[in-house]
Amino acid sequence: MEDLKLKLKEQIIEALNLEGMTPAEIDDAAPMFGEGLGLDSIDALELIVLLEKKYNIRIEDPKDGRAIFESINTMAAYIQSKQIA
């Protein structure tokens, strides 16, 4: 799980061009939208594309993204649950 979180952080930094940020600076539990990382709705679309490209996971209803992308913890848990399934 920790490996997955680290990899996910690296992929998010690259996909969202979070210049100057390192995986260590992203708190696993911190909210990704609003406060915390400060992402917005366009970033949410980029994250949906990232999940599909890197993990072959398709989010059919974008509304589900709110819960999935709440934090690195929730995102990693969602990926793991899909991979197990």
């Binding site: 366009i42 599909e52 490209k53």
Partner: peptide
């Protein structure tokens, strides 16, 4: 590359 799927919004915008 992605056969018209998984398109990033930023480059399009």
């Amino acid at each position: 590359d992605n056969t018209e799927t998984m398109l990033n919004p930023t480059a399009f915008m």
